[in-house]
Design a protein around this nucleic acid. Structure first.
Length: 156
DNA sequence: GCCAACGTTGGC
DNA sequence: GCCAACGTTGGC
């Protein structure tokens, strides 16, 4: 089993949107970056997901989710009405993929990016803390996963 | 709103 | 293949 961090902008789709979705599940479509796509390609049903709020007043990890299906072609790339439409991607050779993401539970305590930065040593080269990181899907090691869950389980 | 850090595009 | 221009991400 692997672990991932997925970023979402709370103003467009935050934790509450995920929890309010049918079956607490959404299609993680619209990833249009090759490196992020390669991470999605490596994801499998059952993998753990840190749900992260980005581009907001207080960025950080809000809750725990899981990959709810194996990767498959992202339908939005073939939908001309979608903002994620990619006219250069061919159905017989899809360029972009997606997975379903299902909410497990909210963290007892929000773990902000600022707090994560104070634990840069313990988190040992956490991809999120690397300079200039812009990927929307990042790998998380088991040690990093356990550490962040522990932070998020502390009393406020 | 600013700006650093990328990724992509396209001319050459 | 190089590189300038441009667009996007995302923290602050």
């Amino acid at each position: 089993m692997a672990y991932w961090l997925m970023k979402s902008e709370p103003e467009s789709f935050g934790w509450d949107h995920l929890v309010g979705s049918p079956k607490r599940t959404t299609v993680w479509d619209g990833v249009r970056n090759y490196q992020a796509r390669n991470h999605l390609r490596a994801a499998r049903k059952g993998d753990g997901v840190l749900f992260y709020h980005s581009a907001c007043a207080e960025p950080g990890v809000v809750g725990i989710a899981e990959v709810a299906c194996d990767p498959h072609p992202d339908p939005s790339q073939f939908d001309p009405s979608s903002k994620y439409f990619d006219s250069t991607s061919r159905p017989d050779d899809p360029r972009w993929i997606t997975v379903d993401v299902r909410a497990r539970r909210k963290l007892r305590r929000f773990v902000s990016l600022a707090e994560l930065r104070t634990h840069a040593d313990e988190l040992d080269d956490f991809a999120l803390l690397r300079r200039g990181n812009r990927l929307s899907v990042l790998p998380v090691t088991e040690a990093q996963w356990e550490f962040i869950l522990e932070l998020g389980s502390r009393a406020s």
